[in-house]
Structures are given as C-alpha cells and as structure tokens.
C-alpha cells in the first residue's frame, strides 16, 4: 500500500514534468519561428516567389539572395566594418571610463560623491526623445560632425547605466584589499589598474558584451547623424534596403541574417555572461 502511493506520486510527478517540457519546448519553437523563417527564406532564390510556401525543411538552398543583397549596394562590407569599429570603440571606452567611475563611486570617498552619482543617475529617467533634437543640433550643426564616426560614438562613450552596473559590481569587492594596496604605496590609479580592475573582470565582461551588442544593434542615432552611404552602420544600411526594394523579401532576409549572425555567434560563445549579466544591475546588490 505504501509502495503503491509512492509509485503513484512518481507517476504524477513525471506526467507533470513531461507537460512542463512540452509547453516550454512548444513555446520556444514559437519564439524561434520568426528567426527560423528568416534563415530559411534567405536561402530561397529571390526570383521564385512560389517557393515561399512555408515548409519546415527548406526546399531549396541557393546563396542568390545573399549575392543580391551584397550587390544592391557596394558598401555592405563597409557597413559591417563600420558597425564593428564603432561597437568596438564604444565598448573599449565604456570598459575604461565606466569602470573607473564605478570604482570612484563604490570605493572612494570624496566631497559630493552622492550628489554626483545621483545627478548622473537621474539621466536614466529622461526619455531619449526629449534630448534628441538639441543633441542632434549640437552634434550636426554646432560640432559639425555629421557623417563622422565621432558623431556616432561620442554620446555613447560612457553610459550612465554602465557606471551603475560597475558600481553595483565593485561594491562587493572587499575594501581590505584596497587598504593593503594603499599601505604598499600604490597610487590611486595603480590600485584601480592592479587590484580593482582584475577583480572586477567578470562584471566588466558582462558590461562589455551588453555594450557591444547594444551598439551593434543601435539604429536610430547612427541613422540620424549619417548621410552618405559609406558612413552607414549595418543596421541603418539594412533598413535602407527596405525602403529601396521592399518587394524582395529573400535578399531582405539575407541582409537581416548578415546583420544578426555576429550577435548570435557572440551569444552562443559567451552565453554564460549573457545569462548572468541581466541580474547584476536589476537585483539590488
């Protein structure tokens, strides 16, 4: 009798588990569907619209759509290079400047520390639309930087959100280490470089990844401040394809694949950091 109850419990447990797995797998298939459809249709010949009939396994495999996308504008490779360069520079700048500021706000004491911190933080609450127009006038008309890398990079050189992230992360580094380094007559910058930065590396890695992906995927600002085709980023270039030729879905999907594949690869390679990263800033540390 006792054994029977145990078995019964076991059975219902496995049924429940099975149901959960089924629902989760079904739902994740649903969420994959748009991306899967993007991938499948990018391998379809752009001239045969009949093949757009949905099938789970692609009916044809040609790279014609890709070559169409690469030939519609001779700058596609340049766009990818621009995106890589801009995202790289913005990420490096944030790694450097946000972690320094994070160190100052978490571990150093100086007059006005909290006032400065909260002043910076207040900018998170300001919707981008409010500052957009004067920012545009400033960068394009006053600084005359339209169509330059500077115009795209400069406003993002150190993000307040990243400073917050670094402050949160560095608060957990024991202060005794810093005191020990100070007794060894390390300069403040030496402490940052030799003690704090190495210890904060996991947090810095998370910040770097999110900054890189965010910059790579950014559309609106690069779109506003670039005019010539050679200065576009891949996202802006991809959107221009839509307006140039909105009937050619195959090549459009090929372009979408090209624009997102680097990020998917990055995600699979650095999954661990992605999945940790989200909780660093949001859960109060």
């Amino acid at each position: 009798m006792k054994g029977e109850i145990k078995d019964l419990k076991g059975a219902s447990f496995y049924i429940k588990r099975g149901l959960i797995y089924m629902v989760l797998i079904l739902w994740s298939l649903f969420t994959f569907l748009p991306l899967y459809w993007m991938l499948v249709s990018s391998f379809i010949d752009p001239n045969s619209s009949a093949s757009l009939q949905f099938t789970l396994v692609p009916k044809e495999f040609t790279l014609a759509s890709y070559s169409y996308f690469f030939t519609f504008n001779k700058n596609v490779l340049r766009w990818l290079f621009n995106s890589l360069l801009i995202s790289g520079v913005v990420t490096l700048a944030n790694v450097f400047f946000a972690s320094m500021a994070g160190y100052a706000f978490s571990k150093l004491r100086f007059p006005g520390r909290n006032a400065f911190f909260w002043t910076l933080m207040s900018s998170i609450m300001i919707p981008g639309q409010v500052t957009l127009i004067p920012l545009y006038i400033l960068v394009v008309n006053v600084f005359n930087m339209s169509d330059t890398y500077f115009a795209i990079i400069l406003p993002g050189v150190v993000s307040v959100y990243n400073i917050f992230l670094m402050k949160q992360y560095m608060t957990s580094i024991p202060s005794t280490l810093i005191d020990a380094a100070r007794i060894d007559a390390c300069s403040e910058f030496g402490i940052f470089r030799k003690v704090i930065f190495p210890m904060a590396k996991p947090g810095v890695a998370v910040m770097a990844i999110f900054t890189f992906v965010g910059q790579w995927n950014d559309f609106f600002w690069p779109f506003l401040v670039t005019k010539t085709s050679t200065m576009r980023t891949i996202q802006v270039g991809l959107s221009s394809f839509k307006f140039a030729d909105s009937t050619q879905f195959g090549p459009m999907m090929a372009g979408a694949v090209i624009a997102s594949i680097p990020m998917f690869i990055l995600f699979f390679a650095l999954q661990k950091y992605f999945l940790q990263g989200i909780t660093i800033g949001a859960i109060k540390g």
Partner: peptide, 16 residues
C-alpha cells in the same frame, strides 16, 4: 536568443 537580434532585424522579419 531572440533578444540578441536587432530591432531592425525583428521588424523586417515580421514585415515579411
């Protein structure tokens, strides 16, 4: 994973 795709990508895929 879908959150890694850009807004432009997602918009174009859904346009399709």
């Amino acid at each position: 994973l879908p959150a890694v795709a850009s807004g432009v990508t997602i918009s174009l895929v859904w346009l399709f």
